[in-house]
Every structure is written in structure tokens, then in C-alpha cells.
Design a binder for these strands. Structure first.
Lengths: 258, 258
DNA sequence: ATTCGGGGCATGTATATATAAGTTGGCGAG
DNA sequence: CTCGCCAACTTATATATACATGCCCCGAAT
């Protein structure tokens, strides 16, 4: 059976993914409530007519997400439905805001092509003085200012921004449409005091605390594309992380370099 | 197999973990620099004298951590050395400090058994008023105060703390020794202003920004054991997170409930 | 009634094998 | 010399099998 348009033998369906999605669905829609025991591996094998390999792969994925737990000799059981966000929803303020029923707003303060400062150059792995595209935006939720964002793109990626209305759409959606794929990000959190323009734009007293997220986003090949310094008004937005001993998560506490 | 002089099948050494650790070591010490191609699966099989199963398990773990990348038909290659920490090293301030060559210090301000406030009760999933063990500690790095920690334990876990010198050892090590296993944690980050006692203990001006980490730590069964509110002086400690589109990491940006 | 032990069952780990599908590099035709 | 195609290599996926080890429950002994 060649079926030239498809594959000769169907299998390329990635059974373990099918199984994982099915179990995820059962958990989120309540057929497998929190605390419930999952079917044993053997039962899942029978149900999906597969061998233990794919079943165990699916269970391992769920375990890594922290959704199920259970050890050797005991059937796994549901420990909770971990809130997760897709990569794009996490990176894109607009997309995230809409998913929480808030009206996102934004005001572009500046869009410029300029030489990279030492900090930006280090983050983007380019020589100091190389041209980068810098955009400063004030972000709002339901008309209330919540964040000031200072983002630098490499010229290669950033040139797409000049033919784009940065006050309306999502930058990430636009970049993706132009073939710029962002698949990995490193986030660093600390606290800073609001100063000068930031305090004014965010409408908070000078010196009041802000949550700062610095972010380096890269392509699949590990090439940095974006560096951003985002400062949030406390109480409007927080960041939450789940980690488990099993899936040594990538949450790290660090001493800043300098 | 042979395995004649020892137990019938002796492995139980978790070969895939051994292989993963070895590869991790090669990457961090430079024998496999960033960008380098890993040996093919077949070569690794020969080198470690195992079948493809354990090798693929090890590679899958590295891939989930974002350290290596590569797809079907191509040898995987190193995309970066992601700093990771074990669960215990991430949870335990003392252990973490020692791994960074700093001298950790701590001063216990208070250790008390008291009724749970609304906030604590909600975090630990116990009724308001239930007895919990609360400990307040000032944490130092090289004699400099960097963090104030307010932790509440359920009575079940916290009772072990009264026969323990909280100024010397690691609480987590002590709890683990008493059979309290902590395997999952949820961390929430925001910024707050330093106030009253906190500002005084941390030796910063009142009103200056602090990075706050609130943490709920649970057992493998999903039962909350510990709730902590830690406030860090900026510039001394930051938190870093890596996430990739592939391994939908559990990093989430949230609107606080209240 | 309570406790202790054993057996059944479930998961963890490893091997061997087979097929599908993507990557790469080299060879030959134009 | 260039372009296109094919063959070899490599990874992704799935099956079948075997044994080690930990949990849980039930039954027997106290």
C-alpha cells in the first residue's frame, strides 16, 4: 500500500502523543478527577491496542508536567491540573491578556534602530555597536498601565517591525509570519525601584517596587533574537512556576553576574 | 548476560541516569562544546555497552532540559549549557549557597506553634485556625543579609523542627531524614516594598523594592506541607527560568487572585 | 481485633528487533 | 561545472520479552 499522498504504513501518528492527549482530556474534563487512580499500564495497553512503550512514554510526559504522580509498584494517580501556557501565550502579552478576559492595550513610546549597548550586545551575542532594533512600549490591562517593556531585536528579525503597526497587533505573531521562529527563552526575575519616566508612565510613586523580568529569546538553533527588560507594577501580574523532583525542572536561583 | 558472580541481574543502577550524567558532565566541562554534535545513538550504545533504550531515555531527558536539540535523521547537537539545580538544592537555601562558594548564614527570629491565618490555611489546604508551625528566619550570604523567610509547616511535618537547631543545619535535610518527602513546589514571584522589621533586618531603607517568592511545597501525593513567603534584597539573588516550545515548560504568568 | 507475612500485581529497567522517515553526501547525467 | 537523484546513515516509533523491585491487600497467627 503506497498511498503516495500519505504514508505507506499509517503509524506515523505518534501513538504516545495520542494516548497522552486522551488522558489529558480525561483529566481536564473530569472523567479522571483529582486524586483518582489512572488505569494500569496493562489496561491502557489493551485499551489503545499498543505495547507498553508508547503507554510509558505518554505517562512519563504527564509525570514531567506534574499532572500525575505515583511510584514503583503503585498505580499513578492524578495530583492536579497544572496551569500551563503555550510558549506563544507566555511570550506574547497581548495573547496572554486576551486569554484572561482582560482588554490588552499598548502605547509604543519609541521604535528605533541604534547601536547595541554593552548590555544588549552581551544578551544578543553580537558585537557592541552592532545595529539593533529597539522598541519601548507601555502595556495596559483594561486601560490601566501595568508594564513597561524595553525590547531589543537583532537587525535580522527587527527589520520586520518597521512595516508593522506596533500599537495594534502582536509582534510575535508578525515575526512568526515572517519566518522568525522563537522556540526557547531564558527569564530572569528580580525587583527594582521605579524611576523617572517609568514611574511616570506606570503612574506609581518614584522609588516604589517593580517586578523586573529580563528575557532572552532564541531560535531553535540557539541564536538569540530578542532581549527584553520588562518592569511590572506589583499586584497586577505575577509569575508562577511549577517544579517537581522527578522532572528536574529548569527553575534556577542565581547570583547575578556583575 | 553474564552477571554470574553477582546477583542474577544486578543493574538497578539506572543506566539511563548514568549515561545522562556522563553526557551532562562532558557538556559542562567542555569536552562537548556548544554547537558540537553528540555521538550517534549507536556509538553511545557501544561505548556504554547498553541497548538503545537507556541511551534514548538519557537523550530525551537532555532534550527536555533544552541542553541538546536535533531531529529525526540528524545527530543531536549541543545548543547550550542550561544551568539547572536539583530540587533539594533549589529548595534549600543552605545547600544552594554552599554550591556557589558562598558562606550561608541564618538567624532564627521566631519558631512558634500557632493557629493558621486565612492566607496560610488556604495555601496549606487546612481549616483556618488549625495549628501550624511557623518559623521566621533571616538569611545571610557571607555575613550580608539577603532574605527574610516566613515559613509555615503543617503540624505533621513541623513538629520535627522543635528538636532541631534551626540556626545550623538544613531544615529540608532534617525533614527528609524524618520521612517527610518534598517533591513538588509551586513558586509565585512579585515585588513588594520593604517595611518595618523586614527593612530593618535586611538593612535597606523602608519602602525599597524586594523580590518576593511565595512557595507551596507538597509531597508526592500532592498534599501541601510547607508555605513560605521569602523576600530577597535585589542584586544579591535572582531567579532564572528556561523554557522551550518543545517541552511546554510550566512557567506561567498569572493575575493574582485577590 | 490487631499485627505480621506472603503472594499477586504494577511499575522500573533493560534487551533485541523491525519498520518508517528525515539528512547528508556523493555520483552521474546534462 | 552544476543540478538532481539515490544510497547510506541516523533518528523516531513500535513490538515482544524478561527480570527486578516496590506496593497493597488478604489471610493467618497471636
Amino acid at each position: 500500500m503506497m498511498t503516495s499522498s500519505r504514508s505507506p504504513l499509517e503509524p506515523r501518528a505518534a501513538l504516545h502523543r495520542v494516548i497522552g492527549d486522551e488522558l489529558r482530556a480525561r483529566i481536564t474534563d473530569g472523567r479522571l478527577p483529582i486524586g483518582a487512580a489512572l488505569p494500569s499500564e496493562a489496561e491502557l495497553c489493551r485499551e489503545f491496542s499498543v505495547s507498553r512503550g508508547p503507554v510509558r512514554q505518554a505517562l512519563a510526559a504527564l509525570r514531567a508536567e506534574g499532572i500525575i504522580a505515583g511510584g514503583q509498584g503503585a498505580v499513578a494517580h492524578v495530583v492536579g491540573s497544572v496551569p500551563t501556557q503555550s510558549m506563544t501565550s507566555f511570550l506574547s502579552f497581548s495573547e496572554w491578556a486576551q486569554s484572561t478576559q482582560r482588554r490588552p492595550g499598548q502605547r509604543t513610546v519609541e521604535l528605533a534602530k541604534r547601536a547595541a549597548t554593552e548590555e544588549v550586545a552581551a544578551a544578543l551575542s553580537v558585537p557592541v555597536g552592532e545595529l539593533v532594533v529597539e522598541i519601548i512600549r507601555l502595556r495596559l490591562l483594561d486601560e490601566v498601565p501595568v508594564m513597561v517593556e524595553r525590547t531589543s531585536f537583532t537587525l535580522e528579525a527587527g527589520r520586520h517591525l518597521f512595516d508593522f503597526d506596533t500599537d495594534s497587533g502582536s509582534i510575535f505573531a508578525h515575526l512568526k509570519g515572517n519566518g522568525v521562529e522563537l522556540v526557547a527563552a531564558r527569564h530572569t526575575f528580580d525587583a527594582v525601584a521605579a524611576e523617572g519616566i517609568d514611574a511616570e508612565m506606570l503612574d506609581v510613586p518614584s522609588g516604589s517596587p517593580l517586578l523586573r523580568e529580563r528575557r532572552i529569546t532564541s531560535t531553535g538553533a540557539g541564536v538569540p533574537v530578542e532581549y527584553s527588560d520588562d518592569r511590572y507594577v506589583p499586584g497586577q501580574v505575577t509569575f508562577t512556576i511549577n517544579n517537581t523532583a522527578a522532572s528536574g525542572s529548569s527553575v534556577v536561583r542565581l547570583v547575578p553576574d556583575q
